[in-house]
């Protein structure tokens, strides 16, 4: 039986198989869909191409979204880092790429939801920056996306990936945990470390609310994608250094679900509280409705 429902199963299957988690997720998908691995790999590879196109489009975009709240952050940041560097290439690219994809989404461009449209910049931001800085071949990037997807499936099946159910921890938190796992595999970490990277990333997003201004996937979503990508890099390097999460990943996932259920409805994508109901948030909302 080649299936998994928890992170600990995924980790032990990879260890028994002496492989990476990506290999387990890919084989399991092939078996479930009754397709060969090559076809599944190629479908994922196409998604990587779409992600790269979103990055290229976003960093050169000078147009605003319909609400005019976002649209040019990626191009501004891209031109800033072409002349300055403070945080270093890997981190700066992660920020830039995540902003790019997220702004393409906000401006009605083509993206890959991962796991949702609101959090679509985090995984490409993290994996594309790391793979470029480390000169890794596309094959490795595509494989790392299977690792990310496996983590996302476990979170989706044991908790939730919907902001309306679990707040933003379910969207950007999950995306960040998925990206941390992918990056860790790109950096050469083993299955146990992937588990810790997931736990570390998700733990630090627990309780994150979803309170978007005017109900749109823009504020705070776009910039949060940039933070989410960097957050994934931090979790991956901590885990790679051997730093472990005291609470195991599957327990963190269940805790996130519990916290999501306890969170008031007003902070779960309804825009009835938080940033959405600040004086500025309300002003933007009434402008959008006029």
């Amino acid at each position: 039986m080649n299936s998994f429902s928890t992170i600990s199963e995924l980790v032990s299957m990879a260890k028994e198989n002496h492989s990476d988690i990506s290999e387990i997720v890919l084989s399991s998908e092939a078996q479930r869909m009754q397709k060969d691995k090559e076809e599944i790999f190629n479908t994922m590879s196409h998604r990587l191409t779409v992600m790269r196109n979103s990055v290229e489009k976003g960093r050169k975009n000078y147009n605003y979204s319909i609400s005019k709240m976002v649209g040019t952050n990626a191009s501004s940041f891209d031109s800033f880092i072409s002349k300055n560097t403070y945080l270093g290439g890997m981190v700066e690219k992660a920020i830039c790429y995540a902003l790019s994809v997220s702004e393409v989404n906000a401006c009605m461009g083509l993206v890959v939801a991962c796991p949702t449209a609101g959090s679509c910049g985090i995984l490409p931001g993290a994996v594309l920056s790391v793979s470029e800085e480390m000169n890794l071949p596309d094959e490795k990037i595509v494989l790392s996306m299977f690792t990310a997807a496996g983590i996302g499936m476990v979170i989706g099946n044991n908790a939730t990936l919907a902001g309306a159910v679990g707040g933003c921890q379910a969207e950007c938190g999950s995306a960040s945990a998925m990206a941390a796992a992918a990056v860790l595999e790109l950096m050469g970490g083993g299955p146990d470390q992937v588990g810790h990277a997931v736990a570390l990333a998700l733990k630090n997003c627990l309780g994150l609310v979803c309170d978007p201004v005017a109900g749109l996937v823009e504020v705070p979503c776009v910039k949060r994608n940039a933070f989410g990508a960097v957050h994934a890099l931090v979790a991956a390097e901590l885990a790679l250094a051997g730093i472990e999460s005291v609470i195991p990943p599957d327990e963190v996932i269940l805790a996130s679900y519990e916290i999501g259920r306890l969170m008031p409805k007003s902070l779960k994508e309804t825009s009835e509280a938080g940033l959405a109901k600040t004086p500025t948030g309300k002003k933007i909302e009434s402008m959008m409705n006029s």
Binding site: E29, M108, L110, V111, V112, V217, E218
Partner: peptide, 18 residues
């Protein structure tokens, strides 16, 4: 959540899946 492509996907025009 039956497929990895439910997680890394769909490919779509933004901004909102719903």
């Amino acid at each position: 959540m039956e497929s990895v492509f439910d997680i890394i996907g769909p490919i779509m025009i933004g901004p909102s899946s719903s």
